[in-house]
Amino acid sequence: MNPWVRLMSKNVANICIMLILPLVFIIIWFYLAKSIDNTVILPSPAMVLQLLSHPSENLISMGSLTNNIFISLLRVLAGYILAVMLAIPLGILMGYYAKIFQLFNTFVGLFRPIPPLAWVPLVLAWFGISSFATLTGVERGILFIYLNNIKLSMVFIIFIGAFYPVLTSAIYGVKNVKKTLIDSARVLGASESDIFFKILIPAAKPSIVNGMRIGLGVAWMCLVSAEMLPGSLSGIGYLITHAYTIARTDVVIAGMISIGVVGALMDTLFRIFEEKKFKWQRLIR
């Protein structure tokens, strides 16, 4: 057999296996929806598909699915980027210097078990409904609309969610660098900054990127809770809660599916990047 044909048929077989469970799930959903026959409790897959197949259509006078997802993405990225910018340098320092680790570990560890949602009352008291627009002083125009949609309270909740996975993986990424690598760099004449930038960071990179991937997932999961906060009038999480109050379960499910798809997509992109960039890491095991 031609190797290309063999590769293709192998891929087709793989895709078939992947599709079995989703198909079974949809069939069961279809029959359940039919027997319940109440679209508030369980709308049929066809209704939800109808919504998903027109993602740029205005829904329950709240804008389209795509528009709401876009606003949600902006919020997640704002909180996530802040978390990454703080957690990576802190994690690297904590991983390398025992004293800095001792200084921060207990303190940071105290906050780790607190679910992001538990911060809501405090965050509201602190930030209210102020947003990036309040911070930057932009008061009109299209930029205002977007900036005003990124509420500080939401960014904080998302920040908390993303911070810990990134921090932990940076700490352990650096801690697990083989001592021989550092020693051998030293005898070759490496300065302290060489050790940092040419040994520690590249060696810890796979672990850090893996933490960033997990952090993005958690940040995305914090979205719905963040968007339930007052001052929110848009976003996919808000769309879901609002649809619930007016008993549009089909919109709720379409929103949930969108969250899942976008999250999985981001995760896959990260994974492809990791596999491409860090081939050496899989192969040295």
């Binding site: 020693d183 005898v187 590249p202 050496w280």
Partner: peptide
């Protein structure tokens, strides 16, 4: 450590990346 004294270790010490 100085550049005048080199060392080869027992464990593999090459940078894998």
């Amino acid at each position: 450590p100085s550049r005048d004294i080199g060392m080869v270790f027992q464990e593999y010490s090459l940078l894998p990346w």
